[in-house]
Amino acid sequence: MSDCMSKIIRTTADIMFMFIVVFGFYIVLHGHLTPGGGFQGGAVIATGFILLIVAHKLDDFLGWFKKKAFQNFEMSGLILFIGTALAAIPLGYLFFMNFLSGAGGLFGQVVPYGVNPGFLNTAGTIPIMNIAVGIEVLGGLSIIILYMTSGISNHEEGE
């Protein structure tokens, strides 16, 4: 991993990275309407980052994205997840209660039951938890690969 790939691979990775990230966020945001969800979308976005790690030098990648950023992604995702679950308690509901469903506000549109074309502003706390898990998986999988790659390069330098 110490030297980068050829120019064709690097350019293709740069272009594909944008589409992969946009597609991953689409999967995360539409998790309550179409096949997909937080974990799958986060894994797709992490694949985009891993493509950059594989195509470029590790030092170049660490110049663009810090390790600290991915750690913050993961922690903020986990805190958002648990915070959404805990936010139901002061409002008088149970832990993990879907208190936004059908309430009319954020993600609170009442759906027509049965087969429908799908409305984005529905499903209560489920899209928020999708986003939280998506951010967490994005940071987690990226930082696992980042640590393993830097472990390889540390090993090669220590020969």
Binding site: V115, N116, P117, G118
Partner: peptide, 11 residues
């Protein structure tokens, strides 16, 4: 079919 109601052809 898969358990998704968005444009489902059957129930």
């Amino acid at each position: 079919i898969a358990p998704i109601f968005t444009g489902a052809p059957s129930l």
